[in-house]
């Protein structure tokens, strides 16, 4: 009986808390593709060789071999692109929206989803100005947002900042390797 009770407690503690929306996807699209009035989804079905290439570059592979870029256009001119990127950790998933401008640099990053447990940590990192560090970042530059905000925030928000850095790094690699490829 004691074992069963301990197992129940362990299972309850291990359970990931529910997901909460921090920014609606549509709002993230409006912020990161400003002025766009037409949109397209560019779906990249990545070959095994290219999956290995991105894995060797940043230690990440597109889930199920698929990357989707949402492209914003105004009067048929591309104004930028955006991708939603999931980052997993033992506390659950985070979802980022990473926007790129037409020159191919990062326009902005929004954290669209977190879990109930992670939300206060993420908000603390965001309040410390985490996403400011990504604006204008070239896609071949390593993101260093966490390094900038860590002295001002707690340990768990610092860990969230590291995860967000990682998500931006993955998005940058995906953009660099697959966005312009036709």
């Amino acid at each position: 009986m004691k074992t069963i009770m301990l197992s129940a407690v362990a299972a309850a503690l291990l359970h990931i808390t529910p997901t909460v929306i921090l920014v609606k996807r549509q709002d993230a699209v409006s912020h990161l593709l400003p002025g766009a009035d037409q949109f397209a989804a560019r779906e990249v079905h990545v070959s095994s060789a290219d999956s290995r290439r991105i894995h060797d570059a940043v230690g990440w592979e597109p889930p199920d071999g698929m990357i989707t870029f949402y492209i914003g256009k105004r009067q048929d001119q591309v104004t930028g692109a955006l991708m939603f990127m999931r980052v997993d950790c033992q506390h659950g998933p985070l979802e980022l929206a990473v926007g790129f401008d037409s020159r191919g640099t990062v326009r902005g990053v929004e954290v669209t989803k977190a879990t109930v447990e992670m939300k206060p940590w993420v908000l603390e990192a965001l309040r410390a100005g985490l996403t400011d560090a990504y604006r204008g970042l070239a896609v071949d530059q390593p993101p260093a947002g966490a390094e900038k905000v860590k002295p001002k925030i707690g340990a768990m928000p610092g860990y969230m900042a590291e995860l967000i850095d990682k998500g931006v790094m993955h998005a940058n690699a995906a953009y660099r390797l697959f966005y312009v490829r036709r």
């Binding site: 996807r25 549509q26 699209v29 037409q38 949109f39 397209a40 989804a41 560019r42 779906e43 990249v44 079905h45 990545v46 070959s47 095994s48 290219d50 999956s51 199920d64 071999g65 698929m66 989707t68 949402y70 492209i71 697959f178 490829r181 036709r182």
Partner: peptide, 27 residues
């Protein structure tokens, strides 16, 4: 690849790119 209409069981031999118009609501 459930998010895509064209479900692929195996990774393609070469990377394949498709593009289709989407609405704000779909995104």
């Amino acid at each position: 690849a459930g998010e895509a209409m064209m479900a692929m069981q195996m990774p393609p031999e070469t990377t394949v790119v498709t593009e289709r118009p989407v609405s704000m609501a779909e995104m």
